[in-house]
Amino acid sequence: MSEFSLWDIVYNLLLAARWTVLLSLTAFVLGGLVGLLLLMVRTAGNPWVIRLVRGYVELFQGTPLLMQLFIVFFGLPLIGLDVSPWVAATLGLTLFTSAFLTEIWRGCVESIGKGQWEASASLGMNFTQQMRYIVLPQALRIAVPPTVGFSVQVVKGTAVASIIGFVELTKAGTMITNATYEPFTVYGCVAVMYFLICYPLSLFARHLEGKFRHVAR
């Protein structure tokens, strides 16, 4: 029926999985940077900015990732930017990631007590110094486990990019299925590959969580 052996399937999926990893990494790093920026402007405390960032977060947490990608994919050409699926997926996932990460980190920063801010202010530090030397180092330790945990969501999110035509693991699965008519095997392999990427991240996040809890006690 098909000339595809199991090995061919796996090999082609592995090739595509590189794009899943690349898209995940890019979105995670860029999203982290944007998220950090949002966190900074938000923590600096202009009430309008705070409201704006909150709206941004709620928008991304209250709508489907697929719609976010569609809007980027179909919206950018309207302002004269012709974008490839790769660019649209990267941009969409970056914004998505930034909204979630900034919200996670906000919680971490807020868990640093007011006393720390006041103590550092009393030492004559300005906002940047307070952040740099006092708040961030403490918040960072709390923030690492949920951040690693969220990276799993980013990897899984990249699957949605297949719908705007970006050829990554899921899209490759669909294409190979169409060629082999073996959806059970192909999607089974696709799932296994996602699992192999995500499960170590999950385990790592859980490990960090346990470690942090240990430190906190």
Binding site: K156, A159, V160, P183, F184, A191, F195, C198, Y199
Partner: peptide, 20 residues
């Protein structure tokens, strides 16, 4: 763990296209 570490879209495809 299987479900939490794989995309919903793949789960959906597996159920709809794979289970038959």
């Amino acid at each position: 763990e299987l479900i939490r570490n794989t995309p919903f879209l793949v789960q959906l495809f597996f159920i709809f296209f794979g289970l038959p």
